[in-house]
Simulated assay, not measured.
Amino acid sequence: MKYCRYLSDGVAQYALVEERDGLLWAVQSMAPPEEDLAACLAALNQPADRAFTPTPLANLSLLPPVTPSKIICIGRNYREHAAELGNEVPKEPLLFLKPPSSLLAPGGTVKMPALSKRVDYEGELAIVIGQRCSHLSPAEDPLDYIRGYTIVNDVTARDIQKSDGQWTRGKGWDTFCPVGPIVSDEIDPLDGDPVTVTTRLNGQVKQNGSTADLIFPLDFLLRYISASITLEPGDLIPTGTPAGVGPVQTGDTVEVEITGLGVLKNSFSAE
């Protein structure tokens, strides 16, 4: 299943997505997931048999396809990325949070804060949680708790991150978590089918890494996180960025592409 979230007549709507001739199309309306309470309430006032016209995603006003209670990110989860920033490989997953207020839709503009002299892109594969997950045991299948996957750009004010010594402010600014365009369970990076994360800056490839190179694989991450933090439906887990991160300037465009998940494209401007 693939789906998107979009704005129609001022209301968030959901639609199933198919690929047609290399393009992603919204082809059928679907019920909102349980965590998007506003959309669920709005759906109660809509006729169940309302007509839906298949539409290319490019023609929709896309929203972030997730409404998480929290965004739990993994730092330095690719060896080469840790090395390029002069850091040691972590012995355990390095967790940090982005607030939900940092979410940004595909096509939206990242606002670079005036306080920062360097803002970086970081393309990532992200897990979307499908059901409540706490203390996941070795005997349990992590797939039972994963709704699907999406794309995230973990935008970072690198100088603020370094000066603060912890990462909340440097990574938590409004608009610093572009996500989308879809959520899909039709890729399988958990069971030995790695995906490639490709990031382009103004059309030039800057990152091209495989989830086969993750230091901490996805199943390990779910067990590690859920041992201390209960994961709720819709929660978002960006899983780390490959080597090749770098700064952006006003007017730049960044595209993060993962086969099966489409392309997350956003522009950057001064705050």
Score class of each variant (00 low, 15 high):
R5V: 03
T239V: 11
T250V: 11
L37H: 13
P142R: 12
S269K: 01
L115S: 14
W25D: 06
N59A: 12
P178H: 09
R76C: 09
C73Y: 05
D193Q: 13
M112I: 08
F96L: 07
L143E: 13
P54L: 13
K162H: 04
E255G: 05
Q28F: 01
L136V: 11
P65K: 10
L231V: 07
S137A: 09
R200E: 12
S228I: 08
I151F: 13
A42I: 11
E140P: 05
N77T: 15
S269C: 04
L62K: 03
M1Q: 12
W173R: 09
L7N: 09
Y78E: 03
S184R: 02
N87V: 00
R20S: 06
W173T: 01
L222M: 08
T230S: 09
K206R: 14
I151Y: 02
L60E: 07
P68I: 09
L57V: 03
L218E: 01
K98H: 03
G165C: 10
G10E: 07
G203W: 06
L44N: 08
S226F: 06
P178G: 01
L23D: 14
L201G: 00
Y14S: 04
R50I: 06
Q161Y: 06
K91I: 02
Y224Q: 00
I215W: 04
I151S: 04
H81V: 07
T196R: 15
C177S: 15
R76L: 11
H81T: 03
P99C: 12
S134T: 15
G130P: 02
L60S: 03
G209R: 02
D159E: 14
A270N: 07
L41Y: 14
G10V: 12
H135K: 15
R169G: 15
L261S: 09
L60Q: 04
S102G: 08
S61L: 11
G86F: 01
E92H: 15
S8I: 03
V89N: 12
G108N: 06
G130W: 02
E80Y: 02
I187L: 11
R132N: 09
P181Q: 10
T196C: 12
T175A: 08
N208C: 13
L218F: 08
V256R: 05
A126P: 03
A43V: 11
P233L: 06
C73M: 07
L201E: 09
A139R: 14
I182V: 07
D188Q: 10
P47R: 13
T259I: 10
K2Q: 12
E186K: 13
L236K: 03
I146S: 03
F96C: 03
L231M: 10
T253V: 11
A42M: 04
W25S: 07
H81F: 05
P99A: 15
I225C: 08
M112Q: 12
L190V: 12
I72W: 00
P90W: 13
V256I: 14
F216L: 11
I146C: 03
L143S: 04
E80G: 05
A270G: 12
V152N: 06
T253L: 02
K111N: 00
P242F: 05
V205A: 12
L115A: 15
I72N: 01
D49W: 01
G260C: 04
V197P: 03
H81N: 11
L214N: 01
T55E: 10
D9I: 12
G262A: 14
L41I: 15
S163N: 15
P90N: 14
V11W: 05
P189M: 14
D193R: 04
V119A: 06
L143R: 15
M112T: 00
